[in-house]
Protein backbone atom coordinates (compact mmCIF):
# COMPACT_ATOMS: atom_id res chain seq x y z
CA UNK A 1 0.00 0.00 0.00
CA UNK A 2 2.69 2.39 1.08
CA UNK A 3 4.75 1.40 -1.83
CA UNK A 4 1.98 2.18 -4.29
CA UNK A 5 1.56 5.58 -2.73
CA UNK A 6 5.24 6.21 -3.07
CA UNK A 7 5.23 5.13 -6.69
CA UNK A 8 2.32 7.48 -7.39
CA UNK A 9 4.06 10.37 -5.74
CA UNK A 10 7.15 9.65 -7.76
CA UNK A 11 5.15 9.57 -10.97
CA UNK A 12 3.50 12.90 -10.16
CA UNK A 13 6.87 14.39 -9.38
CA UNK A 14 8.37 13.14 -12.62
CA UNK A 15 5.54 14.44 -14.72
CA UNK A 16 5.71 17.79 -12.95
CA UNK A 17 9.40 17.85 -13.71
CA UNK A 18 8.82 17.13 -17.35
CA UNK A 19 6.20 19.84 -17.54
CA UNK A 20 8.61 22.30 -15.95
CA UNK A 21 11.48 21.43 -18.26
CA UNK A 22 9.18 21.40 -21.25
CA UNK A 23 7.70 24.76 -20.23
CA UNK A 24 11.01 26.56 -20.00
CA UNK A 25 12.08 24.87 -23.21
CA UNK A 26 8.99 26.13 -25.02
CA UNK A 27 9.73 29.70 -23.95
CA UNK A 28 13.33 29.34 -25.07
CA UNK A 29 12.15 27.95 -28.40
CA UNK A 30 9.75 30.86 -28.86
CA UNK A 31 12.57 33.31 -28.22
CA UNK A 32 14.80 31.60 -30.74
CA UNK A 33 11.97 31.38 -33.25
CA UNK A 34 11.28 35.11 -32.87
CA UNK A 35 14.88 35.90 -33.70
CA UNK A 36 14.84 33.65 -36.74
CA UNK A 37 11.50 35.00 -37.95
CA UNK A 38 12.55 38.65 -37.66
CA UNK A 39 15.88 38.16 -39.40
CA UNK A 40 14.46 35.71 -41.94
CA UNK A 41 11.44 37.83 -42.80
CA UNK A 42 13.46 40.95 -43.45
CA UNK A 43 16.20 39.18 -45.36
CA UNK A 44 13.75 37.23 -47.53
CA UNK A 45 11.84 40.37 -48.44
CA UNK A 46 14.84 42.66 -48.73
CA UNK A 47 17.70 40.70 -50.25
CA UNK A 48 16.15 40.56 -53.71
CA UNK A 49 16.14 44.35 -53.82
CA UNK A 50 19.75 44.80 -52.85
CA UNK A 51 21.89 45.10 -55.93
CA UNK A 52 24.80 47.11 -57.22
CA UNK A 53 22.50 49.89 -58.34
CA UNK A 54 20.95 50.17 -54.88
CA UNK A 55 24.36 50.41 -53.24
CA UNK A 56 26.04 52.79 -55.67
CA UNK A 57 23.34 55.20 -56.82
CA UNK A 58 22.14 58.24 -55.02
CA UNK A 59 18.55 58.34 -53.81
CA UNK A 60 16.03 59.94 -56.14
CA UNK A 61 12.67 61.45 -55.23
CA UNK A 62 13.35 61.41 -51.47
CA UNK A 63 14.42 57.78 -51.56
CA UNK A 64 11.46 56.47 -53.48
CA UNK A 65 13.77 55.54 -56.31
CA UNK A 66 17.48 55.09 -56.86
CA UNK A 67 19.86 53.75 -54.28
CA UNK A 68 21.23 54.71 -50.90
CA UNK A 69 24.82 55.63 -51.77
CA UNK A 70 24.79 59.01 -50.00
CA UNK A 71 23.14 57.38 -47.00
CA UNK A 72 25.92 54.77 -46.79
CA UNK A 73 28.53 57.54 -46.95
CA UNK A 74 26.63 59.48 -44.29
CA UNK A 75 26.49 56.40 -42.04
CA UNK A 76 30.21 55.76 -42.46
CA UNK A 77 31.07 59.37 -41.65
CA UNK A 78 28.88 59.73 -38.59
CA UNK A 79 29.89 56.33 -37.20
CA UNK A 80 33.54 56.95 -38.01
CA UNK A 81 33.64 60.30 -36.24
CA UNK A 82 31.84 58.85 -33.22
CA UNK A 83 34.17 55.86 -32.90
CA UNK A 84 37.30 57.93 -33.51
CA UNK A 85 36.38 60.21 -30.64
CA UNK A 86 35.14 57.52 -28.28
CA UNK A 87 37.94 54.95 -28.71
CA UNK A 88 40.87 56.77 -27.09
CA UNK A 89 38.67 58.10 -24.29
CA UNK A 90 37.08 54.71 -23.66
CA UNK A 91 40.38 52.83 -23.58
CA UNK A 92 41.98 55.46 -21.35
CA UNK A 93 39.03 55.38 -18.96
CA UNK A 94 39.21 51.59 -18.73
CA UNK A 95 42.95 51.80 -18.07
CA UNK A 96 42.25 54.28 -15.32
CA UNK A 97 39.73 51.97 -13.66
CA UNK A 98 41.87 48.84 -13.76
CA UNK A 99 45.41 50.17 -13.52
CA UNK A 100 45.38 53.46 -11.68
CA UNK A 101 42.26 53.83 -9.59
CA UNK A 102 42.54 53.24 -5.89
CA UNK A 103 39.22 52.08 -4.52
CA UNK A 104 38.33 55.46 -3.12
CA UNK A 105 35.02 57.23 -2.96
CA UNK A 106 35.82 59.29 -6.06
CA UNK A 107 36.27 56.17 -8.16
CA UNK A 108 33.01 54.68 -6.92
CA UNK A 109 31.23 57.84 -8.02
CA UNK A 110 32.90 57.88 -11.45
CA UNK A 111 32.02 54.22 -11.97
CA UNK A 112 28.46 54.84 -10.89
CA UNK A 113 28.03 57.61 -13.45
CA UNK A 114 29.58 55.48 -16.16
CA UNK A 115 26.88 52.89 -15.50
CA UNK A 116 24.27 55.64 -15.44
CA UNK A 117 25.49 56.92 -18.81
CA UNK A 118 24.93 53.43 -20.23
CA UNK A 119 21.32 53.49 -19.09
CA UNK A 120 20.31 56.84 -20.57
CA UNK A 121 17.86 56.28 -23.45
CA UNK A 122 18.85 57.40 -26.91
CA UNK A 123 16.12 60.01 -27.24
CA UNK A 124 17.59 61.83 -24.23
CA UNK A 125 21.00 61.74 -25.90
CA UNK A 126 19.27 63.15 -28.95
CA UNK A 127 17.73 66.00 -26.96
CA UNK A 128 21.06 66.72 -25.32
CA UNK A 129 22.97 66.61 -28.59
CA UNK A 130 20.43 68.95 -30.10
CA UNK A 131 20.54 71.43 -27.20
CA UNK A 132 24.31 71.26 -26.69
CA UNK A 133 26.12 70.49 -29.93
CA UNK A 134 23.57 71.70 -32.49
CA UNK A 135 22.35 74.85 -30.74
CA UNK A 136 24.67 75.80 -27.87
CA UNK A 137 27.97 75.08 -29.62
CA UNK A 138 26.49 76.16 -32.93
CA UNK A 139 27.55 73.06 -34.86
CA UNK A 140 24.15 72.79 -36.48
CA UNK A 141 22.70 69.54 -37.79
CA UNK A 142 25.93 67.93 -38.87
CA UNK A 143 28.15 64.88 -38.97
CA UNK A 144 30.19 66.27 -36.09
CA UNK A 145 27.15 66.91 -33.85
CA UNK A 146 25.96 63.36 -34.46
CA UNK A 147 29.45 61.90 -34.11
CA UNK A 148 29.99 63.57 -30.75
CA UNK A 149 26.59 62.43 -29.51
CA UNK A 150 27.27 58.87 -30.65
CA UNK A 151 30.69 58.98 -29.00
CA UNK A 152 29.03 59.57 -25.63
CA UNK A 153 26.57 56.76 -26.31
CA UNK A 154 29.16 54.11 -27.17
CA UNK A 155 31.60 55.17 -24.47
CA UNK A 156 30.20 52.81 -21.79
CA UNK A 157 30.30 49.85 -24.21
CA UNK A 158 33.94 50.53 -25.00
CA UNK A 159 34.92 51.08 -21.39
CA UNK A 160 33.23 47.88 -20.28
CA UNK A 161 34.74 45.67 -23.00
CA UNK A 162 38.23 47.08 -22.50
CA UNK A 163 37.99 46.81 -18.75
CA UNK A 164 36.84 43.20 -18.93
CA UNK A 165 39.84 42.25 -21.00
CA UNK A 166 42.30 44.29 -18.92
CA UNK A 167 41.07 42.41 -15.88
CA UNK A 168 41.97 39.05 -17.42
CA UNK A 169 45.66 39.99 -17.70
CA UNK A 170 47.43 38.14 -14.86
CA UNK A 171 48.80 40.28 -12.03
CA UNK A 172 52.07 38.38 -12.51
CA UNK A 173 52.72 40.22 -15.79
CA UNK A 174 52.41 43.57 -14.09
CA UNK A 175 54.69 42.46 -11.26
CA UNK A 176 57.20 41.00 -13.71
CA UNK A 177 57.39 44.21 -15.68
CA UNK A 178 57.55 46.54 -12.68
CA UNK A 179 60.22 44.40 -11.00
CA UNK A 180 62.41 45.01 -14.05
CA UNK A 181 62.25 48.73 -13.39
CA UNK A 182 59.51 49.53 -15.90
CA UNK A 183 57.21 52.40 -15.03
CA UNK A 184 53.49 51.89 -14.75
CA UNK A 185 52.86 53.44 -18.16
CA UNK A 186 55.58 51.34 -19.83
CA UNK A 187 53.99 48.25 -18.29
CA UNK A 188 50.59 49.24 -19.66
CA UNK A 189 51.81 50.02 -23.17
CA UNK A 190 54.34 47.21 -23.62
CA UNK A 191 52.75 44.31 -21.74
CA UNK A 192 49.13 44.84 -20.78
CA UNK A 193 47.60 46.42 -23.88
CA UNK A 194 49.20 43.91 -26.29
CA UNK A 195 47.49 41.18 -24.25
CA UNK A 196 44.15 42.95 -24.59
CA UNK A 197 44.00 43.70 -28.28
CA UNK A 198 41.23 41.15 -28.98
CA UNK A 199 39.07 42.44 -26.13
CA UNK A 200 39.51 46.06 -27.15
CA UNK A 201 38.76 45.18 -30.76
CA UNK A 202 35.59 43.36 -29.75
CA UNK A 203 34.45 46.41 -27.80
CA UNK A 204 35.18 48.62 -30.79
CA UNK A 205 33.18 46.44 -33.15
CA UNK A 206 30.22 46.28 -30.77
CA UNK A 207 30.43 50.06 -30.46
CA UNK A 208 30.35 50.41 -34.23
CA UNK A 209 27.29 48.17 -34.30
CA UNK A 210 25.52 50.29 -31.77
CA UNK A 211 26.43 53.50 -33.60
CA UNK A 212 25.18 52.23 -36.96
CA UNK A 213 21.88 51.07 -35.50
CA UNK A 214 21.22 54.24 -33.53
CA UNK A 215 18.33 56.30 -34.86
CA UNK A 216 16.61 58.66 -32.44
CA UNK A 217 19.74 60.46 -31.29
CA UNK A 218 21.11 60.72 -34.82
CA UNK A 219 17.85 62.03 -36.19
CA UNK A 220 17.92 64.97 -33.76
CA UNK A 221 21.60 65.81 -34.28
CA UNK A 222 22.53 64.96 -37.86
CA UNK A 223 19.28 65.90 -39.54
CA UNK A 224 18.12 64.14 -42.68
CA UNK A 225 19.77 65.65 -45.73
CA UNK A 226 20.10 63.19 -48.60
CA UNK A 227 23.13 64.87 -50.09
CA UNK A 228 26.63 63.46 -49.73
CA UNK A 229 28.30 65.49 -46.98
CA UNK A 230 31.40 67.33 -48.12
CA UNK A 231 32.65 68.13 -44.63
CA UNK A 232 31.90 67.10 -41.07
CA UNK A 233 29.84 70.26 -40.66
CA UNK A 234 27.28 69.16 -43.25
CA UNK A 235 24.01 67.50 -42.44
CA UNK A 236 23.52 63.99 -43.76
CA UNK A 237 21.37 60.91 -43.22
CA UNK A 238 22.31 57.53 -41.80
CA UNK A 239 20.84 54.19 -42.84
CA UNK A 240 18.79 53.83 -39.66
CA UNK A 241 17.26 57.27 -40.07
CA UNK A 242 16.65 56.53 -43.74
CA UNK A 243 14.87 53.31 -42.81
CA UNK A 244 12.69 55.20 -40.36
CA UNK A 245 11.76 57.89 -42.89
CA UNK A 246 10.96 55.32 -45.57
CA UNK A 247 8.90 53.20 -43.16
CA UNK A 248 7.05 56.10 -41.59
CA UNK A 249 6.19 57.76 -44.86
CA UNK A 250 5.55 54.57 -46.81
CA UNK A 251 7.57 55.84 -49.74
CA UNK A 252 8.65 52.55 -51.22
CA UNK A 253 8.18 49.04 -49.82
CA UNK A 254 11.00 47.77 -51.95
CA UNK A 255 13.60 50.32 -50.81
CA UNK A 256 12.46 50.03 -47.19
CA UNK A 257 12.94 46.26 -47.13
CA UNK A 258 16.28 46.60 -48.89
CA UNK A 259 17.54 49.14 -46.34
CA UNK A 260 16.33 47.04 -43.42
CA UNK A 261 17.98 43.96 -44.91
CA UNK A 262 21.25 45.83 -45.33
CA UNK A 263 21.13 46.87 -41.65
CA UNK A 264 20.44 43.27 -40.61
CA UNK A 265 23.37 42.04 -42.71
CA UNK A 266 25.66 44.58 -41.04
CA UNK A 267 24.46 43.50 -37.59
CA UNK A 268 25.03 39.83 -38.44
CA UNK A 269 28.50 40.59 -39.76
CA UNK A 270 29.44 42.61 -36.70
CA UNK A 271 28.25 39.91 -34.33
CA UNK A 272 30.08 37.21 -36.24
CA UNK A 273 33.32 39.17 -36.28
CA UNK A 274 33.06 40.01 -32.60
CA UNK A 275 32.42 36.35 -31.74
CA UNK A 276 35.30 35.17 -33.91
CA UNK A 277 37.72 37.59 -32.32
CA UNK A 278 36.78 36.74 -28.78
CA UNK A 279 36.80 32.99 -29.34
CA UNK A 280 39.95 32.76 -31.50
CA UNK A 281 42.20 35.26 -29.77
CA UNK A 282 40.56 35.69 -26.41
CA UNK A 283 42.54 35.49 -23.15
CA UNK A 284 44.98 32.66 -23.67
CA UNK A 285 47.89 33.02 -21.31
CA UNK A 286 49.36 29.53 -21.32
CA UNK A 287 49.04 28.48 -17.71
Amino acid sequence: MDRIKHENLKRIKTSKNLLFYGGTGVFAAITLATLIIIIGYILVNGLTHINLEFLTQEPKRMGKEGGIFSVIIGTLMVTGVGILIATPIGIAAAIYFTEYAKNGKGVTIIRFFTEILAGIPSIIFGLFGFAFFVIFLGMGWSVISGGLTLALMVLPTLIRATEESLKTVPMAYREGSLSLGATRWQTIVKVIIPCCKPGILTGLILGIGRAIGETAAVMLTVGGSLRIPTSIFDSTRTMSVHLYVLAAEGLSQEKTYATAALLIIIVLLINTIANLISSRLGGNYGN
Binding site: A172, Y173, E175, G176, S177, P194, Y285, G286, N287
Partner: peptide, 8 residues
Protein backbone atom coordinates in the same frame (compact mmCIF):
# COMPACT_ATOMS: atom_id res chain seq x y z
CA UNK B 1 58.61 35.12 -8.69
CA UNK B 2 57.10 31.94 -7.32
CA UNK B 3 55.32 31.07 -10.52
CA UNK B 4 57.28 31.61 -13.73
CA UNK B 5 55.79 34.71 -15.35
CA UNK B 6 57.29 35.22 -18.78
CA UNK B 7 55.37 37.77 -20.84
CA UNK B 8 53.31 36.40 -23.73
Amino acid sequence: FQKPNPFP
